[in-house]
Design a protein around this nucleic acid. Structure first.
Lengths: 219, 219
DNA sequence: AGAATAGTGTCTGTCAGACAGTATCGC
DNA sequence: GCGATACTGTCTGACAGACACTATTCT
């Protein structure tokens, strides 16, 4: 066993699962039940099981299925974290992914489990995280922001049908600064990523047109 | 041993080492001496040795030190490739990096080794590559191009001191299309990445000013 | 009518591509 | 002078931020 430690690195994944709650970008944290780092908040993650997982992405989906009751619509690789000291169990390599979860599925999603679960503020989680997860979370947020700043649309955070105002709100929450309405809508009209529907949302004001992701959409 | 295969994935790195030769973007390939995939061209790579390597990046440097006699100035992570079938030895996960090598060090660089070594065209290598290395190479080129298109300067492909014309040439070779001289130079003057020197290159025409990377430079 | 949100029109500064023009060398 | 390469100036069209304006609903 201790020889195995010398010969074979531990291999697994961590996942930063983002959502938007209360006008804030949130990330799912779990309170670890077991050693190492027991009772400390951490990104959900786990070691790969070669007989179960077809890939690291599959590993990520399996791990998250323990905390969340939905299929993740999209997994994006961020970076790998490796070395002899980052986990006391031995030389380890963890591949970090991030995923986005639609607003309207949040309540249905959190499963009862041994560990506590929390949607923490993604920018300022308010906990000291286990292992190198603070660094990982920073990297995941940075990658997400870069992608959205580069004109990708975070539709995976929205319901299947959504208004442009909702989309604009989510984008500005992710980026951390206001987004101009006019230029935002101009961009979207030129884009092939959205399809306008003939449906409208009625509320206490002018109805808003609904949109959905087009076939050409890729995050 | 066969139980180990079930329990522990193989872990290693592959490296796409780029350079510019003869006005083309080239990548270093090695001809594998051992099974699996013996005698097939491949990206240089190797399994991590926990007692030797402090990280996967260190693993990459060690593997490349067998083929190349210089320290790699920069390693950039591209993606991971994993699964039970991509390597016949078992469930494996390889982390792909790319690196850039300065033009003026190429000749000093290739070591005598068991395997053959070749600088192949990065866009059309002309060989069927081992494992999933064709896909890996495509991803590495794409990532490099995206980085350079996003205003990063590939100074690691140039000598320490270089002219703007040389830099422009390298950028256009990487991107695969011509770059406008005027706007390119305008961008560089506004940038803090370069420092102009008081030295000039004299040739058969007007001397060209030399530049070097500034402290603020980061690829 | 007024509040609230959806959606549009217009102005303007910035910036990148295009390309012509000038500068400075060797021969 | 001529060829070659380095370097600069200028024009113009595209576009994004700013922001005011119009539109449509509910109360």
């Amino acid at each position: 066993m201790s020889e195995d430690k010398e010969l074979f690195p531990l291999v697994g994944v961590d996942v930063a699962l983002f959502s938007v709650v209360d006008e804030r970008l949130k990330v799912l944290l779990v309170k670890r039940a077991r050693e190492p780092e027991a009772r400390r908040w951490a990104l959900p993650g786990g070691l790969v099981k070669p007989h179960l997982d077809a890939s690291l992405a599959a590993n990520a989906r399996r791990v998250l299925a323990d905390k969340v009751a939905v299929d993740l619509p999209h997994l994006e690789e961020v970076a790998t974290y490796s070395g002899p000291d980052r986990d006391p169990r031995g030389w380890s390599v963890m591949v970090l992914f991030y995923a986005l979860l639609p607003l309207d599925k949040i309540n249905a999603v959190v499963r009862n489990k041994v560990e506590a679960v929390e949607w923490a503020d993604a920018i300022a989680p308010g906990h000291r995280l286990a292992f190198d997860h603070t660094e990982q979370l920073t990297a995941a947020v940075k990658k997400l922001r870069a992608k959205v700043a580069g004109d990708a649309l975070p539709l995976h955070l929205l319901p299947e049908k959504f208004t442009l105002s909702q989309l604009q709100s989510v984008v500005s929450i992710i980026l951390g600064h206001p987004v101009d309405k006019s230029s935002f809508r101009r961009r979207l009209k030129a884009s092939t990523q959205l399809v306008e529907l003939d449906e409208f949302v009625r509320g206490a004001q002018r109805p808003a047109q609904l949109f959905r992701a087009s076939e050409a959409f890729s995050f």
